[in-house]
Structures are given as structure tokens and as C-alpha cells.
Amino acid sequence: MREWIPVSTSPRGRLVLAAAKEFGARPFDEVTVAELAAAAKVTTGALYHHFGSKLGLYTVVREDVERRLLDRMEGAMAATGPGPDHSAAVTSALLVGLDFAVRENFLRILGEPPQDTEPDRLAELLERSAAPSSASTPPLLGRLLAAAWRAALTAVAEGAEPAHARAALAAFRLHTL
């Protein structure tokens, strides 16, 4: 359950909304504290007061955006239903996730892997879903699928057509090992 729900008219809420927009469209290093504060119509001091740092704000926004992504992907897998090799469910989740990231313009924030200290929840979800009952699932399968999905987002952020990224992800087929 969420600890808080941002209210768009509060300084904290405005910062979260501005950060979601900026970090969604541009890499973390290209977004400045001054730009975030200006977009939220607050001072830089308000950003530091509420989040401690730009990284603190980024972490809050990323966790929220990632949770929304994973909820959609889990729903897509559940709606697809179980299959003998789970390929259709995983492919459906990858496509639903791509569509969400494109529609909401979260290409950059979701296209970047988590910080070194953060767990890769997307990779974990894909690992569990690729072959949930198989002891022979390759240990890196979730990480490889997550990396390919993030590469598709990055390609779209750099100008590739979303339809081409979608077709590439749809071409994935998992095989029972």
C-alpha cells in the first residue's frame, strides 16, 4: 500500500508530477533541481525539504511509476492465462508495459535499470512468470527479458517508432527448457 498519495496542488504533489514528466522524458543526469522546482512552481529548498535530494525525488517517482507498470503487466499475464510455456503471458505483459510507458511518456524513467542498491522488480516479475514451476529456468532469464524491454523503450525515446519496438517484443518466444 502506498505511504502517501500526492495532491497536485501541494508543493510535494507538484514536485512529484513535475518529476514524473521530466524524468519520464529525459535521463536523470539531464534534469536539474532548478528545472524541477521551476516546473512545480516551488523553490529548490522545497525539493530538498520534501525529498532530501534530486535522487530522493527520483526514487519516489520511480517506485510509483514502476508499481503502476508492474500492476499492468501482472494484470496482462493474469488475463492471458496460463499456457504450457508461459510465452504468451510474458509477451502480453511486455507489450502492455511498452504501451503504458509510451502512452504516459515514461520512456526514460522506465528505460533505465534501477540503481545498484535497488532490486530489479521487473526482472523478478519476468523471471517468476517465464517458467514459474520450472526448476530449470535459466537464472538470468528475467534480467535478459527486462534488459530487452528497456532497450525497446530507449529506442522509442531516441526516435524509433513504437510500432517497431512493439513488433520486436512480440517476436519474443520463450521455450520450455
Rank of each mutant, 00 (worst) to 15 (best):
A147C: 02
P132Y: 01
T117N: 14
E30D: 13
A147N: 11
S133P: 01
A40C: 10
E112L: 03
R121E: 15
A163G: 07
P132N: 10
L153F: 06
F172A: 03
V61F: 05
A171R: 15
G83S: 13
A168N: 10
A40V: 03
A38K: 06
K21G: 07
A135N: 03
V33W: 07
N105V: 08
A20D: 02
G97Q: 04
R143H: 14
A131G: 02
E30M: 10
A148I: 13
R14T: 06
A131V: 03
E104G: 06
L145E: 04
G81Y: 08
L95P: 05
H50I: 07
L122P: 03
L169E: 09
G97S: 02
V65E: 07
A34D: 13
E158N: 12
F51Q: 00
P139L: 14
V156S: 12
F172L: 13
L69H: 08
D29Y: 04
S87G: 11
R72K: 15
E74C: 03
H50S: 02
V33E: 02
A147M: 02
V61Q: 05
R12S: 05
E66P: 05
G81V: 14
G13F: 08
H164I: 11
R62Y: 01
S136I: 15
T154L: 06
L47V: 00
A37R: 00
A151Y: 05
L153Q: 04
H164L: 15
M77E: 03
E74K: 12
V65K: 01
Y48M: 09
P84A: 15
R62D: 02
A135M: 11
D120N: 14
E22A: 12
P11I: 11
L94V: 06
T117Y: 14
D71P: 04
Y48F: 12
H86T: 09
G81A: 12
G159S: 13
A165F: 02
S8V: 13
D29R: 10
A93K: 00
P84L: 13
T137L: 15
A152R: 11
A171N: 15
L36F: 01
P113R: 08
T59D: 09
V65M: 01
A34G: 11
E124R: 09
V60I: 09
H50K: 00
L36W: 00
P132K: 08
F28Q: 03
F23Y: 05
P11M: 10
